[in-house]
Write a protein that binds this DNA or RNA. Structure first.
Length: 439
RNA sequence: GACCCUAUCGUCCAGCGGUUAGGACACCGCCCUUUCACGGCGGUGACACGGGUUCGAAUCCCGUUAGGGUCGCCA
């Protein structure tokens, strides 16, 4: 059997992490089994749809590194892939239901008459669940078309899944209770329902469904804050799934190999930004310098850092990569290398340079660094330590003011490496300049 | 309210009848160290409750409680 899954978001607002994870699970499942992933835009509610939201979906998926085989952008054998363009198809299926006597009118809207039987949902994650649909009070007949002719989600969703030959429907658990209604529709349409897999929800810190107000609920947040896509997919897959051993920092390829729907949890997970942050740091540390540059360049460009040629960027990025946690922090971490007019943290300047004796120590350090024949981080380290012992000062008493003098900041790359990349002349000049204003 | 799902450290994830209940994040110590970070070592910290079944339950069953979800002419 050829596996076919789909991600079917509605373009209302941004792509949120819950949607991203649903897309991820569909992608993992399809890709692991050599199946197809379809992107379908569920834009039946015109009032709520925006073009921006449409773009956010495709851009978000692309950013995450998830590709799809059929969709509005590239078409496919079962298109069109936007529900707003599939009116004829819905008409056809509606006619079928009407001919079979499943439809009745109610105040101008059309409703589907439930067979009122027990429907068993067989779910790959949740197991076998019988739903007693016999009570119209608790399971009212669903509306499938509004008086204005527009379509309701349940109907078009099922029609499209039939028409697009979906074999597996992997979606949020919030749809579990809707599934028996969907199955009634499949049966009325004479179609075999796909395999269902309802994955647990992602909750915020308060245990409520993740909403716009929650930090990190939008994928845009992670893009802007400088998360690596592979870190986000890594974290997201860990919400409800695990490789069943102690591994947590995983490549997408590894996750794809290991992924198994049957191994997915049934309990909702609370989103923990701290852990996502940690995973991001892990991915940054371990990624190749090339990857680091690729991910970092947009932030550097945006910040307007005049780095000249990318060859000048490489050494700067090399000293930053092991320590930076947000890619968006990179520009301010490297700014000092590409201009003499870099911003100076006033608090650092006052606190560190204002400390008694700072002037002396900076001058002494400038002198001993200036006398250095070789200019590399180990030579610098040796010289600084020698200088410190000569002055009877702690190493840190030289390191801190030197860092502020050289970078204008208290945090950043390792001092010795940073001075090496800065170059001897510029380094010494900055030490002297800072000394002039130090206490 | 009815129906459905769920219930292991604060959080995420292991455990699927016999474990000193494990790992990670966070937190707290210590070490390394140039700050932050990274790394190393150690610590605090959990089987919601009550009944069963069993020689033996975190694991199986029932109930209670709690949380979440669905019950739309939203998706």
């Amino acid at each position: 059997m050829d596996i076919r899954t789909r991600f079917a978001p509605s373009p209302t607002g941004y792509l949120h992490v819950g949607g991203a994870r649903t897309a991820l699970f569909n992608w993992l499942f399809a890709r692991k089994l050599g199946g197809k992933l379809v992107l379908r835009i569920e834009d039946t509610d015109e009032k709520r749809n925006t073009p921006e939201a449409r773009d956010a979906i495709t851009e978000g998926l692309t950013w995450l590194g998830l590709d799809w085989d059929e969709g509005p952008d590239m078409g496919g054998p079962y298109g069109p892939y936007s529900q707003s363009e599939r009116g004829d198809i819905y008409e056809k299926h509606l006619q079928k239901l009407q001919d079979a006597g499943h439809i009745y009118e109610d105040a101008g809207a059309l409703r589907f008459r439930s067979p009122r039987q027990t429907v068993v949902v067989e779910d790959l994650v949740c197991g076998k669940i019988p739903f007693d649909m016999s009570n119209p009070g608790t399971h009212p007949d669903m509306t499938i078309r509004r008086p204005d002719g527009s379509w309701i989600f349940h109907f078009v969703n099922v029609v499209d899944d039939i028409e697009m030959r979906m074999t597996h429907v992997i979606r949020g658990e919030d749809h579990l209770s809707n599934t028996p209604k969907h199955i009634e529709l499949y049966q009325a349409l004479g179609a075999t329902p796909p395999q269902f897999a309802h994955i647990p929800l992602i909750l915020n810190k308060e245990g409520k469904k993740l909403s716009k107000r929650d930090g990190g609920s939008s994928l845009a947040y992670f893009i802007e804050e400088g998360y690596a896509p592979e870190a986000v997919t890594n974290y997201l897959c860990l919400l409800g799934w695990s490789p069943k051993d102690d591994r947590e920092v995983l490549k997408l390829e590894t996750i794809r190999e290991l992924f198994d729907l049957g191994g997915v949890n049934r309990r909702n997970a609370i989103f923990d930004l701290d852990k996502c942050f940690w995973i991001n740091g892990q991915h940054i540390i371990h990624m190749t310098p090339t990857r680091f540059m690729d991910l970092t360049l947009p932030f550097i460009e945006k910040a307007g850092i005049a780095y000249g040629d990318v060859s000048r960027l490489a050494p700067a990025l090399a000293i930053v990569q092991p320590k930076v946690k947000h890619l968006s922090d990179v520009p301010e971490w490297i700014a000092f290398l590409f201009t003499e007019d870099f911003p100076i943290d006033p608090e650092a300047s006052q606190k560190v340079l204002g400390k008694a004796g700072a002037k002396n120590r900076l001058e002494a350090l400038a002198a001993s660094l200036g006398a250095l024949g070789e200019w590399n981080h180990s030579a610098i380290e040796a010289a600084l330590k020698a200088c410190a012992s000569q002055l009877g000062a702690k190493v840190g008493e030289l390191v801190h003011p030197a860092r502020v003098a050289a970078t204008g900041r208290q945090v950043g790359p390792g001092l010795y490496e940073l001075l090496e990349v800065l170059g001897k002349d510029r380094a010494c000049a900055r030490l002297m300049k800072a000394a002039a204003s130090a206490a």
